[in-house]
């Protein structure tokens, strides 16, 4: 399955718990688990350009939590960014005021983005996890007429 937009090699590269590490009771005092491999001013660097270390949860994935997934339809989207501001999992990728798509490594499939989408029909809809994106887009509902 696609890992979503702007996926780097490091993003979501392993399941939680699949990493190799010494047990927490073997860690010596003063051990450091930094977020980045070298110092970086994260407020001014795009996520895909940051030197993430293996201890940042950016490198883990929670994709296996999902049973349903949001699918994004670029044709209807108006870039209002409602989904971006309310996504609890930092999984809506927006760059330069444009919504690019979904980060499927970190999305847990809660469905908040679909609920807050204001377009008609919605530009984000929930589909089964096994559904292919093209098949989902082909099934997109027509515009609903207002009941008079």
């Amino acid at each position: 399955m696609s890992r979503g937009v702007l996926a780097t090699e490091k993003r979501g590269m392993r399941e939680l718990g699949a990493e190799e590490h010494v047990g927490w009771d073997e860690v010596t005092q003063g051990t450091l688990l930094p977020s980045f491999e070298k110092e970086v001013d994260a407020a001014h660097v795009r996520p895909e350009e940051r030197p993430y270390s293996d201890f940042n949860s950016y490198t883990a994935t929670v994709a296996s939590w999902r049973v349903i997934k949001p699918v994004y339809n670029r044709d209807i989207c108006i870039d209002c960014q409602n989904c971006w501001v309310w996504c609890p999992d930092t999984s809506i990728v927006s760059r330069d005021k444009q919504m690019l798509g979904i980060d499927y490594d970190h999305c847990k499939g809660c469905g908040v983005c679909v609920e807050v989408c204001p377009t008609n029909p919605k530009s984000l809809l929930m589909f089964g996890e096994s559904e292919e994106t093209e098949a989902a887009l082909a099934k997109w509902p027509e515009k609903k007429k207002k009941a008079k």
């Binding site: 001014h44 950016y58 929670v62 960014q81 999992d89 930092t90 927006s94 999305c107 908040v112």
Partner: peptide
């Protein structure tokens, strides 16, 4: 507006273990 707000660089990473739909992370 939200469009301008959305150019911020995220500093809170995904794959935390909060429940799906938790408002804490929002």
């Amino acid at each position: 507006n939200l469009k301008e707000f959305s150019t911020a660089n995220e500093r809170f990473e995904g794959a935390h273990l909060l429940c799906p739909g938790c408002a804490h992370s929002m």
